[in-house]
Design a protein around this nucleic acid. Sequence first.
DNA 1: CATTACTTTCAATAATTATTGAAAGTTTTA
DNA 2: TAAAACTTTCAATAATTATTGAAAGTAATG
Lengths: 166, 166
Amino acid sequence: MKFTEAQQEFIQLWGNFGSQWGINKTMAQIHALLLTSEHALSTDDIMETLEISRGGVNTNIRELIVWNLVYKTGKPGDRKEFFVAEKDIWEVAKRITRERQRREIEPLMHHLNRLKNVDEADRQSLDFVKTVTDIERLVGKMNKASETIMKMEENAFFGSIIRLLK
Amino acid sequence: MKFTEAQQEFIQLWGNFGSQWGINKTMAQIHALLLTSEHALSTDDIMETLEISRGGVNTNIRELIVWNLVYKTGKPGDRKEFFVAEKDIWEVAKRITRERQRREIEPLMHHLNRLKNVDEADRQSLDFVKTVTDIERLVGKMNKASETIMKMEENAFFGSIIRLLK
DNA sequence: CATTACTTTCAATAATTATTGAAAGTTTTA
DNA sequence: TAAAACTTTCAATAATTATTGAAAGTAATG
C-alpha cells in the first residue's frame, strides 16, 4: 500500500470516527491530514487536498488551535500562515482529554451534583439520589482513569530515558 | 427540590450529553426516564411523559433493547408491553462499553491495522506507520482501562459480600 | 374468524448541523 | 497610504439526521 493512499483512508477514517464521537467531521479530517503531513500546510493546501471551502478550513483550523492540537507557523519569504499539528499521540490524547474535561465532564458533574438535592424521603427519591450518585462516581472514575493512562505513558517515557542513562 | 422536577432535569441532561456523545437524544431521554422510574412503563406512558410520537418510542426502545439496557415485561390483565431499564449503573456502563467495543472500537482497530501496510520506506511513510501504531496502542489501552474499571467494581461488590460473610 | 388491541415500519417532513462563498476586515508591502 | 495579499465572518444554502403519523402487520380475544 502506498503512503498517499493510506493517508487518504486515514483521513476518511478519522473523520468518520470523529463525527461518531460528537466531533465535527471536517475538523477531524483536517486534524488527520496535518497529523500525517511531514511539513506545515497552508489554508490553500488544505482546501485543495480535502476539497473544502476557505471558510471551512479557517473555522475548523481555528477550533483545532483552541483545542491546542494545531499551531500556526510562518515560512520565510511567504506571507501566508502555515499550520502544524502536535504529532505526539499521547500529547494529543492528553489535550483532548483536558478539553473534554473542561467542556463536558465538569458541567456534567456540576449538574449531577445539583440533582442530589431531592428533599423527599420516599423510595423513588432515595433511589433517584443513589442513581445520580453512582453516575457521578462512575464518570469520576472514568475520568481519573484516562488521566492516569496519560501519566503512565509520561512515566514510561521518562523511565526509558532513565534506563538509557544508567 | 422535588423528585419529579429533578427527574425532568435529569432526562434533559442525559439527552443532551447523549447527543454530545453520538447517541440519539430521544434514546438517551427514554433511557433516563426508565432508569429513574420505579415501575415499568408502557409505550403510551413514555409518549405522554416525553411528548414524542409512538413511532419514535417504538424505534428507540427497540434500540435500547439491542443495547441490552432495557427489557420488556408484561402486566397481568394488560395486553400491552411494559419496559424496564437495568438499574445497576455499573452494569449499565459495562453493557454500553461492550456495545461500543463491538460497534466502534473493533472496526476502528481493524482499519488502523490495515493502514500499517504502507510499503514505502521514506521518512513520511515510517512516521505514518508510527502514528497509526501509537493510535492503536492508545485506543487499546483506553479500552482495556474501562473494562478494568468495570471489573474493579464487580470485585468491590463481591468483596463487600465476602466481608459480610466473615 | 372477525374484531379489537396492540406493535412495527417507513415515506414524508421537520429540525438540526455543516458548508459555502462573497463581503468585510486586517496586515504587509512598495 | 493605496494596493495587494491574505484572514475572518456570517447569512444563505446544502446535507444530514431525527421525528412524525398513518398504514400495514401481528397477536390475543370472544
